[in-house]
Design a protein around this nucleic acid. Structure first.
Lengths: 355, 355
DNA sequence: TTGAAAGCGTTACCAT
DNA sequence: ATGGTAACGCTTTCAA
């Protein structure tokens, strides 16, 4: 087996012209079907499986590779159910369209990405980028679709966080008033509300900060529901959790559930947080939903499986990925005008907060 | 902003030589630190963020990109907790070493991958590839590390499936005999034991087939434990589940738990299956662990969180990914001799099958 | 530090 | 269908 085989050598071996071999791979219409068949099968036998990507993309200015840049570290993203679902949707569409998937993390210092940003024909940016990677990518002038990040200049795909949060809070509140006939004492377990690496409660001045769009929208939705029913939620009933993982979430839940008077409603900004809260409640001997109602956000698969199953807001993460990928592919090939897509959310009522 | 900027133009703009700019990016030692600083910052200002990957890798024959090829579809892999954990470990190491991650799926028909296989400097192959993609990749002559797939020619990273399965089965069996003082009536919910797309029981002749190495090893482990305690498990007590997802798993569990006499031990070849079985048991009003012991395999995060939590075999998926990635990087730079790494498993005893 | 030039594998265009 | 050739952007070598 020859280690390196290129078009020229293959053409020589097969006794045809170099252009013809190239055409066999790229433009079926430029030669007879028979010859094409022969070239394809023979060259495969020789160990040549198609044009070298680097050379081809250097020449053509396009690679067939799509870059997905994640605001958090790659490694964390794989462990996050919501990011995984997004990637699931994205990869579905990319595979269907024979595009490759290059994963980039947006939290790297600088030119740490070796220079891989130059390869993809377009980018999906998930979350809000911190460093200068965003700027670098934008300057490439290639199509970009941003997901879960509001912005003017690029295509965006978002969900209606505010409406979703409002709906689930309203459900919990009215449920408490009507079914359980008791006063509402709600706490909020919030995700990334302020810029701090620690679990902590908000201060009065934090309540109006616009740190991370998504969480602020959800908070706004909760607050609208509260206002609607004349419920009061003090800043010190709102926890900030820096990262969507069980350890931080459990800590916050433990703090929240050991304050007096103890909250009887826990509005959680993610399912991971809510499931952690349910676990802490069980540890503390608090019964759900009699003594405590817990709501989530996202509707990750585990929310339906867990016991008690979780009342939450379905945000269609997989579909979000599909939509983003389709939009990107479309704008790579068609030069369309900037789109801002907003997907609906849906309230999913389950045991942790039943009717 | 100029859309396309290359080394030559940048050099011209900065009034230095093209070689010097190249050196600024690739060989800090070839010029003064001061000049380098200036070039880096100035060129970034101009909108040039480093050499074009296609050109660079064409010239150098190396791209800094690592390909991870998954035997199942990309989209499925993102939904599978074990695959996600592997990717988590892999990406950790790759990021640390400033390598990029290109995802490829191994179940595509043929040259569907556009030709992206030519880009990576090396490959991690996860699972047993079906099509000819494997062959194609092997012919590239680039370093390959195979994970969860036994083979001679390449580096491999595996776990000791047999020992793990034997340990967990022994635990369940002795637990039943000693703690619950009852006879053992065990069924096995197996993953991909035969080549069929449907949930079904094994036939006597299936029991000795070598379809998919991993599952066969686990089956062998279970059988050794059974033999050791003089327990008999007929082929019709062994279910085949074609894919590691809850729907198939629930169906198999339902079948198994409605046979008479009803099994009091369910040995499941994955945690996803075991958690499904636990759910079905609850639906059917079967109490765990009194009436039924369920064991899993993998130790995915949800196994610890679920209620009842799951007795299982920890296979260190994240670490497996790390090890594979390190081995690959090592063999890319050092030309080492073929290694076959086997990671240990560990029995994790929890509520579904307590002491 | 520099300028010049070769060459990585491809595609696209030309005239044949 | 072919053979020839320029160009894609880069790295590397060599002599200056």
């Amino acid at each position: 087996m020859n280690k390196k085989l290129n078009l020229t050598q293959v053409a020589k071996q097969l006794g045809v012209s170099i252009a013809t071999v190239s055409n066999a791979f790229n433009r079926p219409d430029q030669l007879s079907a028979k010859l094409r068949e022969r070239i394809l099968s023979e060259s495969s036998k020789l160990g040549y499986h198609g044009p070298n990507l680097a050379a081809r993309s250097l020449r053509m200015g396009a690679s067939g590779v799509i870059g997905v840049m994640l605001a958090d570290s790659l490694s964390y993203s794989f462990s996050d159910p919501v990011a995984s679902q997004l990637l699931q949707g994205v990869s579905e569409v990319l595979v269907d369209n024979k595009k490759q998937l290059l994963l980039l993390s947006g939290n790297l210092d600088s030119a740490e990405q070796s220079s891989a940003e130059s390869l993809p024909d377009g980018f999906i940016l998930y979350g809000t980028m911190k460093g200068k990677s965003l700027e670098q990518i934008e300057r490439l002038g290639k199509p970009i679709v941003k997901v879960d990040c509001r912005t003017e200049g690029s295509h965006t795909v978002n969900i209606d966080n505010e409406a979703g949060a409002k709906a689930v809070a309203l459900h919990a509140f009215t449920n408490s008033l009507v079914t359980h006939k008791k006063d509402i004492n709600a706490a909020i377990l919030g995700l990334r509300l302020i810029d701090s690496a620690r679990v902590c409660r908000l201060m009065p001045e934090d309540a109006c900060i616009d740190s991370q769009e998504i969480s602020q929208s959800r908070l706004k939705g909760y607050m609208q529901a509260a206002k609607h029913l004349d419920v009061n939620i003090e800043p010190n009933k709102i926890w900030h959790i820096p990262i969507n993982e069980t350890t931080s979430a459990e800590q916050a839940a433990r703090e929240a559930l050991t304050t007096t008077p103890r909250p009887n409603i826990l509005l959680c900004m993610s399912d991971v947080i809510a499931l952690s809260a349910v676990r802490v409640a069980r540890e503390l001997g608090i019964s759900i939903p009699e003594q405590l109602q817990v709501t989530g956000f996202d509707d990750i698969p585990e929310a339906a499986r867990s016991q008690p199953s979780l009342t939450t807001v379905c945000q269609q993460s997989i579909e979000k990925g599909r939509v983003a990928a389709k939009l990107l592919l479309d704008s790579i090939s068609n030069d369309i005008e900037t789109q801002h897509i907003v997907l609906n959310t849906r309230l999913v009522v389950r045991n942790s907060c039943p009717d």
